[in-house]
Amino acid sequence: MSRRPLTVALTGLNATDSPGAGVAVARALRESPEYEVRLIGLSYEALEPGIYLRELFAKTYLLPYPAAGSQALLERLEYVQQQENIAVIIPNFDAELPHFIRLEPQLRAVGIRLFVPTLAQLESREKLNLSAFGTAHALPVPATHALRQATDLAVAAIALGWPLVLKGRYYEAQVVHTLAAAEAAFGQLAARWGLPLLAQQFVAGQELNVAGLADGRGQLLSAVPMRKLTITDKGKAWAGITLEDEGLTELARRFAAATQWRGGFELELLRTAAGEVFILEINPRFPAWVYLAVAAGHNQPAALLRLALGEGVGPFGAVAVGKLFVRYAWDMIADYTDFQRIAGIGEL
């Protein structure tokens, strides 16, 4: 059967050493069994590597940063839509998600479908709310305290014990073993990310990740567990391997059922030596390593495309275990005129 043509736009083309998922999602969509996908890139900066992957993206448009507001994003997307006739957009960047969610009706009106979580789902798994979220849904989350001032550290330490993990509101974490070290780290993290900070119970163990897809009605469609084999100095996976672990899949299933999650997600997990599993973070989109899921037989992005189009999707079968990904760096060659066009006109 010949595949039907379809235009899909993606963000997250920043395939850098702290990568967005856009390029991996693009690659997965190219292997969609149902659709002959024409890909449009949506980038925020003129040197996002994906822009220059001309064999993947037919064209790329610059978007205004989320800080410019949802109205500015809508106007830009309406312009892009006039040129490209996009059927589905898959956002891959956390900070833009609230805008896309808010704009879903307006985008639908111009013919663009999304398959994204609700605003309430998005907020419930934010770092600040994760502890309450875990309690509410009986999901294992390390005990967490919000810190609004340095003096809150002592209180948190009594409740959580040493060492503590201090986390910035949006990014970055430090493990501290004493009150003095905690106070120093508090100052640094607060200066960088603002208040409140989070103090989390320290849990030792092995880091695991699950890439998942859920249908928004409580059903988990796919969960692919992965263990990182090497990481960069930013803690990002540079190589990983798929696992067979019904416990992890069950956790993803409980997450999908409890939240009625709609779309792709990633669970960042930790398994202690005793075999206890904690959820450290929940990312509201596909991870950058999602192409490994395709290799394991779960083309989650292609399935999400069908969900966005309102087509029925059933649960995937078994995960092919022992599939490895090894990331590599590759220097693409472009010309200054390419840069001028994307930076100056916003299109390439």
């Binding site: 200054y336 005129t337 840069f339 001028q340 930076a343 100056g344 006109i345």
Partner: peptide
């Protein structure tokens, strides 16, 4: 260029 772009080969900078 006709589109109003300027390139300085000595610095690598582009301008509009």
């Amino acid at each position: 260029s006709e589109a109003g772009f300027v390139f300085n080969p000595a610095t690598g900078d582009s301008f509009a």
